[in-house]
């Protein structure tokens, strides 16, 4: 064993901790722009939005590794794809719950017709369906191949959905859009110095959990 450090990639794991600590501490003290509907709860952008950044990073990783799987049929890459999707679902559900809490106070209801909310919910449905699909195929090679095809197909349609939805919404869907500065948040310079580090921190945290899940799964496969 030449590698004397106990943990591989210690630096970026520590970085995730430092960034999130910074976001949690400084995020409460920094001056934030004032909106009547949100008041101080605008600080949620540092934490709740982080869930979406984490989820997106995970789902993109899953998509990329599904493509890579189809190019070489290596089991390793299928494991990355499925564990990334798992962590993505985890972040997505946390994002939905935190979003509902925030929406209740901001818009007066746990669920409102909003493109972002609907997009997130549909994303969850797609990846839960992905897990159901995996569960219903027994042969591991077939499972990896078929679920990779579904992942690529569904991810691209999901991206289309997320891009198309706000354009379709127009005037018909969401009446409160003008009263919701959160979604169209024009981050002022001072807010940005917390927002971006926080997002990087959440994404790194996601990669760490994914990394652990992959390694644990590999331990289970003895050859």
């Amino acid at each position: 064993m030449t590698d004397s450090s106990l943990i591989k990639g210690l630096w970026w794991k520590l970085l995730a901790l430092l960034l999130l600590l910074y976001a949690v501490i400084y995020g409460f003290f920094i001056e934030v722009p004032y909106f009547e509907v949100t008041k101080e709860s605008i600080r949620n952008v540092f934490y709740h939005v982080g869930m979406w950044f984490g989820m997106s990073a995970m789902l993109i990783t899953s998509f990329i590794f599904s493509i890579r799987y189809l190019r070489g049929f290596r089991e390793k890459e299928d494991i990355v794809a499925v564990e990334a999707a798992n962590v993505g679902i985890f972040f997505g559900i946390l994002g939905l719950i935190t979003g509902m809490i925030w929406a209740k106070s901001t818009w007066g209801a746990f669920w409102v017709r909003d493109p972002k909310l609907d997009g997130a919910a549909v994303g969850m449905f797609i990846y839960l369906a992905y897990m159901v699909l995996r569960g219903s195929i027994n042969d591991i090679h077939k499972r990896a191949k078929v679920s990779a095809v579904f992942n690529i197909f569904a991810f691209i349609l999901w991206i289309v959905f997320v891009m198309v939805l706000p354009r379709l919404a127009g005037s018909t869907i969401h009446p409160g859009q003008d009263g919701a500065p959160v979604m169209a948040l024009n981050l002022s310079g001072s807010t940005r110095i917390v927002f971006y580090p926080a997002m990087i921190g959440w994404i790194l945290l996601g990669f760490w959990i994914m990394n652990l899940r992959i390694r644990i799964k590999r331990l289970g496969i003895r050859d």
Partner: peptide, 22 residues
């Protein structure tokens, strides 16, 4: 996709509804 798995019919609905939304 669903034809490659068991439990074909309910899988068909579960897989298709979210991706057909756009």
């Amino acid at each position: 996709i669903a034809s490659r798995a068991s439990n074909n019919f309910s899988l068909m609905a579960v897989l298709s509804f979210p991706i057909i939304l756009p």
